[in-house]
Nucleic acid binder design. Structure first.
Lengths: 354, 354
DNA sequence: GTGGTGCGCTGATGCGCATCAGCGACGCGA
DNA sequence: TCGCGTCGCTGATGCGCATCAGCGCACCAC
């Protein structure tokens, strides 16, 4: 996969010869500088434009880029081990938002599908990364490489992280998981639950930490509430686990991911438990597909499509030299709304206070 | 959105100074030409590599491209008025296949989300298209611009159309709708139906034509069969339409699109008709989501994910100078399989021959 | 000592474009 | 007529890289 494209392509020099001017004039006309530094009379300008139209000239973006102009290309990179194809529900709404906003802004998207995997994560800054082809870049992924982020900051390469980041000076648009998880947890407590189990994953990305903090925060606001955090991958969520939790007094489960919530529902069914009759269950994410088959979970709904769009919009502002972006605006958190489903009611038996 | 990226970026010249050699040597080492045209002793090579590693050098892809080397970037363009975001079910599997293959081939994808719309279609070759940045390009869309295709062919720009094209010398990977539609139609006829209605759209793209031809071909193979073609957009598929078709002797409906098939099912329900009891129904496409809610339609299943992957693979071979691709391989059609569902049985009443 | 040879490296060039100093021509006032 | 400014345009330069002719040197054969 190499080779040269466009053997018969038209260059500014050819335009210039046809129009009887120099290449510089063609460039000036093309870039609308005809009335600025140099002034080009209408007669000449129109003649050049005529030839441009006739030949169907298309600028060589590589040359423009090399000459120092932006090319309205935004890179999209993800740190997950495989590039998130559309099949993976987590990224689908994100990419949809990014694409829609890109069309709005009139810029192209360069998807770095080629990034090599090292140490379980994909690398952005490898030997011949095409990163520098783009004006800026969006970074996706639960866990990012702090060193690479710092390096990009140091080099002054414009980028925006999708999701909150702890690294200094990293611009991001994230989701306010702390407030959202706290609100959902409070809703659980308001329903009368006092003993809650939080099922979470092992990973240590910022969004994971934020969710955990939010749940703890929500519990902390209500006296007499008890929170048990349980690290459990999907396959570890068994009927036995739920039975044990119930035996320990737990009346409500907060799951971190939609997959975990699905496992909770399945395990409950297998254990002969009903939701929310025997156990309330809520989750901090949207189900993959809000179809009729999935139980109508009470949940936190993170606006992922908007997250994608807002991230690209922020990058657009960073790249706009006319936009004097306040530092405070370089970091934003979007609100998550609590969606009422049918899996949260008042606790049934012993745990109620009567 | 402009501005320059990478103020502090490392160039080959800097590497050269640090290593005490010339820029040319750095280039030679980087490109593995150290044993070819020029020979570089290991001592020098290792010294240069050392500096490269220390500085974390990343090549400027724009410069490489300008200097005439491929950059392993493949453009993805669609002629539909809006770039197909992941939400649109038609393109989702296609893009998934393309992305997966891109990761396999180790190339990046440049999505031309910025293309302007003119005359109802998006334009690939506009003033400052970033097309020339890519080594080659994949073209999607039901209807393409024949002039643009011819122009690309004339310029020698490497590209592959996703879907069969009538334009001369256009390489493509398509779906064998003719054979597939014929096979499905034959299956309908084999079930005993002799009076079939084909519901199709107005558009005139190659794939539409192929499906029509396939249905006609299938009917033509069975003596005594009758085919009625009905151009009907989704909203024109009403209970009345089905009732009229039945009254005219039709016992089976072949729908072109999944949306049409869904409308047929809905209209049948509204008219008090059962499928396949009163009317058999088959469709030449997969349903958007093969979930439990959709009726289990007998249908043609076009391998869209594979279509995307094979298209990119073909482009990869075209771009590979070592691959002496036979002309015949530049155009391929993939087989569609017939999937047996529950919406095709023998005709119920009058139309049977007994 | 002379001619020959190959190794290791450098300098120069061009890719297509943006940018700007500056040149020639022309007009105008003195 | 001369000086000076303005208009319209051109030539030169650099962006970062790949490529190659060719230079200087050491070494060898004769």
């Amino acid at each position: 996969m190499s080779g040269r494209a466009g053997a018969g392509k038209v260059t500014q020099r050819q335009i210039a010869e046809l129009a009887g001017v120099s290449q510089a004039v063609v460039s000036l006309v093309l870039n609308g500088k005809a009335n600025g530094v140099s002034r080009i009379p209408d007669s000449t300008r129109e003649r050049v434009e005529q030839v441009i139209a006739e030949t169907g000239y298309t600028a060589n973006a590589a040359a423009r880029r090399l000459a120092g102009v932006g090319n309205r290309i935004v890179g999209v990179f993800t740190y997950e081990p495989a590039f998130p194809t559309a099949a993976q529900d987590f990224y689908t709404p994100l990419l949809a938002g990014i694409e829609a906003e890109a069309e709005l802004l009139g810029c192209d998207l360069l998807m770095f599908t080629s990034a090599p995997v090292r140490a379980g994560r994909r690398r952005l800054l490898h030997g011949n990364s095409r990163l520098r082809l783009a004006d800026g870049c969006l970074l996706l992924g639960v866990r990012m490489d702090g060193d690479e982020l710092a390096r990009l900051v140091a080099e002054g390469f414009p980028f925006v992280a999708v999701g909150r980041r702890d690294v200094a000076d990293v611009p991001y648009v994230g989701l306010d998981y702390v407030a959202g998880a706290a609100a959902l947890t409070e809703r659980v407590l308001a329903a009368g639950h006092r003993s809650i189990a939080y099922l979470h994953l092992e990973q240590a990305g910022e969004s994971i930490v934020d969710r955990m903090r939010g749940v703890e925060l929500g519990c902390g606001r209500v006296a007499g509430s008890r929170l048990e955090t349980v690290q459990a991958d999907d396959h570890e969520i068994t009927p036995d686990l739920l039975v044990n939790l119930l035996a320990a007094g737990t009346t409500a489960v907060v799951a971190e991911t939609a997959a975990q919530a699905a496992r909770v529902c399945a395990a409950a069914g297998a254990a002969g438990l009903t939701i929310p009759g025997d156990l309330s269950a809520v989750v901090l994410a949207d189900p993959p597909r809000p179809g009729p088959e999935a139980p109508d979970l009470t949940r936190l709904s993170p606006p992922r499509t908007r997250l994608g769009a807002e991230s690209l919009r922020l990058l657009g502002r960073i790249l706009d030299p006319h936009d004097d972006l306040p530092v405070a605006d370089r970091r934003t958190l979007l609100d998550c709304v609590v969606v009422d489903g049918r899996t949260l009611t008042a606790p049934a038996r012993r745990a109620t206070q009567r």
